[in-house]
Write a protein that binds this DNA or RNA. Structure first.
Lengths: 190, 190
DNA sequence: GTCTATAATTTGATAGAC
DNA sequence: GTCTATCAAATTATAGAC
């Protein structure tokens, strides 16, 4: 007997994610979540005792889902442009459809004022996504000749450009500009 | 009789800017400002009736100061690398010294939940700073051969990379990584 | 210009009935 | 698991004395 509709906990996580991605962690309350889901705020606390718990779990789920969607970066071997294109496409969908930033990009912007557990998850997103790209790049013609450090820097550099572009595209009300953006691997020969 | 110390209004703007750049617009209160400046919150309201007023004025002052520091982009003519380097240096200082993001980058991240007046100022920062870079690039060897649209896209693309890199460098606790970053103008021959 | 005092609302969180 | 009820604290903002 598998339920076909999302249960309360999942609905809470979904809404919390959407609200953070548009308004930020400090831009939503337990009552916003409760009224949106159709329960009382005490029920939200039943699943997530503190706001930090909720924030951290939203971020972890986001990162896990993100990496699953990206898939394996090196089977089969793909070009650097294809790897970057995958990242770009995943961000572009949410930005175009709902004007949503990368969850962890928003958290990073507010990071100095957030609970430690939440910041740790945001950090982890950049570690893991950077690693995904690094592993993929290593299998390309360009990457096979690059040092570990160059691969690391290039990966974070591509992520940086995508994060910043989402930020600017959204505040400018021009999501289409993000679609046109094509981050380049410098000196890429792949 | 010119005062040598900052008056209350200036102190309020200074502290509000610092708090937004680290915690975000929704991450500080009028009482944070008041206690930091050494007055009561009602005195803060005397200068800035609403939080939106304060936020908008902080953003406008930030943008004005930023552009003054950048100086004239085309007298004398400089290379694309020098223009990008100027932007980079201005961001790097605040990030390295106090872990501060670009004010308008933070506001952009939270933008969907902010008062209109504040969002307008953040938008304006990217318009004006993008224009500054565009005007400078136009005078370079690369820029003189580029279309208006290419100049526009390249300028925003460089800004995007710098904004995203600040975000990532700070949440990762690695401001030094931002210092090493050198955004490239694609196909630049300047 | 700065203060005291306070209003009105919102927030994160808890206790306990059902 | 969800509810009612409530708390303590924080928030934006205002009125009026000095």
């Amino acid at each position: 007997m598998t339920a076909t509709t999302a249960d309360t906990e999942e609905k809470i996580l979904d809404l919390a994610e959407a609200l953070i991605r548009t308004n930020g962690y400090n831009g939503f309350s337990f009552r916003d979540i409760a009224s949106g889901v159709g329960v009382k705020s005490s029920s939200v606390h039943y699943y997530f005792p503190t706001k930090a718990d909720l924030g951290a779990k939203v971020a972890r789920r986001y990162t896990d889902r993100f990496l699953v969607t990206l898939g394996d970066p090196d089977t089969p071997a793909v070009s650097a442009d294809e790897l970057v294109g995958k990242l770009h496409a995943e961000f572009a969908t949410a930005l175009g459809k709902d004007g949503q930033m990368c969850l962890c990009g928003v958290l990073a912007a507010e990071s100095a004022g957030l609970p430690d557990a939440v910041v740790e998850e945001a950090k982890s997103f950049f570690d893991k996504t950077g690693d995904w790209l690094k592993r993929g790049l290593k299998k390309t013609a360009w990457g096979s000749a690059a040092t570990e450090e160059d691969l690391h820097k290039q990966s974070l550099s591509v992520l940086a450009q995508l994060e910043g572009a989402m930020l600017i595209a959204r505040v400018q009300g021009k999501p289409a500009w993000f679609n046109d953006l094509k981050p380049k691997i410098s000196g890429s020969i792949a």
